[in-house]
Simulated assay, not measured.
Amino acid sequence: MTRTWEQLEQTQPIVLKMLRNSLKKERLAHAYLFEGMKGTGKREISLVLTKSILCKNSIEGYVPCETCSNCKRINNGNHPDVHLLEPDGLSIKKHQIQSLQEEFSKTGVESKQKIYILVHADKMTTNAANSLLKFLEEPNAETTAILLTEQIQQILPTILSRCQVLSFTPLSPNEMAKELVRNGIKPNEAPLLAQITNNFDEALTLSTDEWFVQARKIVVKLYEALKGAPLEALVALQRDWFTQFKDKDQFDRGLDLLLLLYKDLLYIQLGKHDQIVYVNERDRLEVYALKTSNRRLTEQMTAIFEAKRKLQGNMNPQLLMEQLVLELQEGSSVV
């Protein structure tokens, strides 16, 4: 489903504000470089900008109507004056840029305006980049170039200098969760993935990572063991935690998962049920939240933060976890 200007403005307000001002003042750059992480809306915003330029009935001079023939054909990918160029295999090759230049040397089919969108512009071969550079050095007043990249450091400085660079910020956890759902992640799994990383690619990878799936289960089991007899949690550490979390990075991720679980308990106590990320454990967490206090949860979360700090200070991870478990258990009843 195509998102509207207003919807995209929720995810990238600064980028849309800059484009809105340029459109209203009719001062569009001849070349843009949209740079930022995957999943931040670069491609969608390149298409909404294209519609804004070619729309026959734009609202207030910048919002595409989405109903005219130009908007509909751009949405369907078949407007004759809009060209989308993607890597041919692993790279964008010289012949692709040359074909584009030949196409743009002709008059626009329906208007003077022509727009090309270069996806993964960082994947141009050196020859392709040099061909594009010549294209950018002699801009046609009716031509707009939009380059998209997740790797701005791979773009030639000479190309960068000829583009207006718009940086797309990482998504907020809430927007990240929505984007993950749009990419096929189950709605009850997306919130946790969005909180554990702000990198869209990493979130997608974790969603199918069996280690991560198991890690989540072990964190929940450890919390349940903390509610039991004093030795139960130490047994759970030996039996489950130390076999799953082996290096420092894995320990750190485990502590992040544990922290998110305690945050969920706090959110439940504060009545913010819509913010919990362990969605599948909601019923059990609601019961657990009744059996502790707001102050105690804050102390336990502080203990986890301190453990993360000690871990980065090269404290023995096994000893660190044993100490943390004792701190999390101590006075765990209602205060």
Results as ranks from 00 to 15, higher is better:
Q250S: 04
E232A: 14
L266H: 04
I304Y: 00
Y262H: 13
R282W: 06
Q250E: 06
F305H: 13
L260G: 04
W241S: 11
L257K: 14
E286S: 02
A289C: 07
A289Q: 05
F305R: 11
D240P: 05
Q300P: 08
P317M: 07
F245V: 00
T243M: 13
G271K: 14
L285S: 00
W241A: 10
A307L: 10
Y267H: 06
L231N: 14
L257V: 09
E286F: 02
L231H: 08
I268R: 00
F242K: 00
A233Y: 06
P317E: 12
L261M: 02
E322M: 09
N314V: 02
L266D: 03
E281I: 14
L237S: 12
T292F: 03
G313P: 02
L266Q: 01
L297D: 01
L259N: 07
K263A: 06
R239G: 07
L285H: 03
N314L: 04
N294I: 09
R295D: 02
K248D: 02
K291Q: 14
K263N: 06
Q238I: 06
T243N: 13
R296T: 14
F242L: 03
L266F: 07
L258M: 13
K246W: 01
L260I: 07
A233V: 08
Q312T: 06
K263R: 15
I268Y: 01
M301Q: 12
R284F: 10
I268T: 02
E299I: 11
V287Q: 15
A289S: 08
T243F: 09
S293Y: 12
D264N: 11
N314Y: 04
L297C: 02
A303D: 07
N314Q: 03
R284Q: 10
F242D: 00
L234C: 10
L255S: 15
L311M: 00
H273C: 01
L319R: 05
H273K: 13
L320C: 01
D249T: 06
P317G: 05
F242G: 02
H273L: 09
G313C: 07
F251A: 03
E299H: 15
R253G: 04
T302V: 01
M315H: 11
